[in-house]
Lab assay of single mutants.
Amino acid sequence: MSIQHFRVALIPFFAAFCLPVFAHPETLVKVKDAEDQLGARVGYIELDLNSGKILESFRPEERFPMMSTFKVLLCGAVLSRVDAGQEQLGRRIHYSQNDLVEYSPVTEKHLTDGMTVRELCSAAITMSDNTAANLLLTTIGGPKELTAFLHNMGDHVTRLDRWEPELNEAIPNDERDTTMPAAMATTLRKLLTGELLTLASRQQLIDWMEADKVAGPLLRSALPAGWFIADKSGAGERGSRGIIAALGPDGKPSRIVVIYTTGSQATMDERNRQIAEIGASLIKHW
């Protein structure tokens, strides 16, 4: 067993022997301040990774656009098919120029040779490549099948209805392509620590998230040296922004954090800054 596999296998073990965790309302004060600064709703939840206990939450059962955070769930569904012998990570998928959609920095470079399922998941999570996500959605049967996968996990809230990039439209009061912070946090925890996926697939999923290259201005910008984070960000229309993450000190994750916002007129930089400040408060009061 590799060191990384050992780390993920012992996530519940280490967490069980940690000192009790206590909620700190100071972080919620910052979440509410972010709402004021952005002029928009902000949803927040913080779960203990081992027990699933909610440590703090704000608007945990209000719907927010998922945006690209759905790509972690998508690759979880792909990995479940791999575990069941219905898919192979090494299978190569070929596609054409007509398949390319807006923001496809990886797939646009491989029109000639195609990409493997493993490479597509890596591109979808680490670079948020939209064509990679659409190609992977095709392998599982489309958005409705991802929703069905989530329902089978016990998540009857999260739903995907459309493809990239239309799913980022974020129309107010439109339930399409949305989740709730509580539902997303619980589902992410199941994917990373539950028995739904094999140990190898859980490790692969967290490795992809740990290698995320496009979430630097968010929670990662607030992390002290030595902290662990595996995350996936999302951005959408109407001032929408979000991030889902597993993080913790001492090089291992111990909490799940989900943050979503929508309806702001603020710039992307300002949305990023507010999420980073929430992260800084979380870490300060850990």
Rank of each mutant, 00 (worst) to 15 (best):
P25L: 10
E26I: 15
E26G: 15
E26H: 15
T27Q: 10
L28Y: 10
V29P: 13
V29N: 10
V29R: 11
K30Y: 04
V31D: 00
D33R: 05
A34T: 07
A34S: 09
D36H: 09
L38G: 10
G39S: 13
G39V: 11
R41F: 09
R41I: 12
Y44H: 06
I45A: 12
I45R: 04
I45K: 01
E46S: 07
E46G: 08
N50H: 10
S51R: 08
G52K: 07
G52A: 13
K53G: 14
K53N: 13
K53F: 14
I54E: 10
L55D: 11
L55W: 14
S57N: 09
S57I: 08
S57E: 07
R59H: 13
R59W: 12
E61Q: 15
E61V: 14
E62S: 06
R63L: 08
F64R: 00
F64C: 02
F64N: 01
P65I: 14
P65W: 01
M66H: 08
M67F: 14
S68I: 02
T69V: 03
F70D: 01
K71M: 00
K71D: 00
K71A: 00
L73W: 03
L74E: 07
C75P: 00
A77V: 07
V78E: 05
R81C: 05
R81E: 05
V82L: 08
V82I: 12
D83A: 08
A84G: 14
A84R: 13
G85M: 10
G85R: 09
Q86P: 07
G90I: 10
G90N: 08
G90K: 08
R91G: 08
I93H: 05
N98T: 09
D99Q: 12
D99G: 06
L100G: 07
L100I: 09
L100M: 15
E102K: 04
E102L: 06
Y103F: 06
S104D: 03
S104H: 03
P105D: 05
P105Y: 11
P105M: 07
V106L: 12
E108K: 15
K109L: 13
K109D: 09
H110K: 08
L111A: 11
T112N: 13
D113S: 04
G114V: 03
T116M: 10
V117N: 15
R118E: 11
L120H: 04
C121Y: 01
C121R: 01
C121H: 01
S122H: 06
S122F: 14
A123S: 09
A123G: 09
A124M: 14
A124W: 01
A124K: 01
A124N: 05
A124H: 01
I125Y: 01
I125K: 00
I125A: 04
T126N: 05
T126M: 06
M127Y: 06
D129S: 01
D129Q: 00
N130I: 01
N130D: 06
T131I: 02
T131Y: 05
A132R: 01
A132G: 12
A133D: 01
A133T: 06
N134R: 08
N134P: 01
L135F: 08
L135Y: 08
L136P: 01
L136W: 00
L137Y: 06
L137R: 01
T139N: 12
T139S: 14
G141D: 04
G142M: 03
P143C: 13
P143K: 04
E145R: 11
L146E: 02
L146C: 12
T147R: 06
A148F: 04
F149G: 13
H151S: 06
N152Q: 13
G154P: 07
G154D: 11
D155W: 00
D155E: 10
D155T: 02
D155S: 02
H156Q: 11
H156I: 09
V157G: 13
V157N: 04
T158M: 03
T158D: 00
R159V: 10
R159W: 14
R159Q: 10
R159H: 11
L160F: 10
D161K: 03
R162T: 10
W163Y: 12
W163R: 12
E164A: 00
E164I: 01
E166F: 06
E166V: 12
N168I: 06
N168E: 06
A170G: 07
P172M: 11
P172K: 12
D174W: 03
D174E: 07
E175F: 08
E175M: 15
R176N: 12
D177H: 00
D177R: 01
T178P: 00
T179V: 03
T179K: 00
M180Q: 13
M180A: 04
M180S: 13
P181S: 08
A183W: 13
M184D: 01
M184V: 05
A185D: 00
A185H: 00
T186K: 11
T186A: 13
T186I: 04
T187F: 15
T187I: 14
L188A: 05
L188Q: 03
K190E: 13
K190R: 14
L191R: 00
T193G: 12
T193R: 15
G194L: 13
G194W: 14
L196I: 14
A200K: 15
S201F: 10
S201R: 11
R202S: 10
Q203Y: 04
Q204M: 08
Q204P: 03
L205N: 01
I206W: 03
W208E: 11
M209P: 00
M209D: 00
E210N: 12
E210T: 07
A211G: 15
A211P: 13
A211Q: 13
D212T: 10
D212G: 10
K213Q: 04
K213E: 03
V214A: 14
P217D: 15
L218R: 02
L219K: 07
A222S: 09
A222E: 10
A222V: 13
A222T: 10
W227P: 01
F228D: 03
F228S: 13
I229Q: 02
I229E: 02
I229V: 15
I229P: 00
I229A: 14
A230V: 08
A230F: 03
D231E: 10
D231L: 09
K232P: 00
S233D: 00
S233F: 00
G234S: 07
G234V: 01
G236K: 00
G236F: 01
G236Y: 02
E237V: 08
E237D: 09
R238S: 09
R238A: 12
R238G: 08
G239Y: 02
S240D: 05
S240N: 07
R241W: 02
R241Q: 12
G242L: 00
G242V: 01
I243F: 12
I244D: 00
A245E: 00
A245F: 03
A245S: 07
G248D: 02
G248C: 02
G248A: 05
D250P: 04
D250V: 05
G251I: 15
G251H: 09
G251P: 11
K252T: 09
P253R: 07
I256N: 01
V257M: 07
V257K: 01
V258R: 00
T261Q: 12
T261H: 10
G263I: 08
G263F: 08
S264A: 09
Q265F: 05
Q265K: 06
T267S: 08
M268D: 11
M268V: 11
D269G: 14
D269L: 13
E270K: 04
E270G: 03
E270T: 04
R271K: 07
N272G: 10
N272F: 02
R273G: 06
R273N: 04
I275Y: 10
I278Q: 00
I278F: 12
G279P: 00
G279W: 10
G279M: 14
A280L: 11
A280W: 14
S281H: 08
L282T: 06
I283A: 12
K284L: 11
H285V: 11
W286C: 01
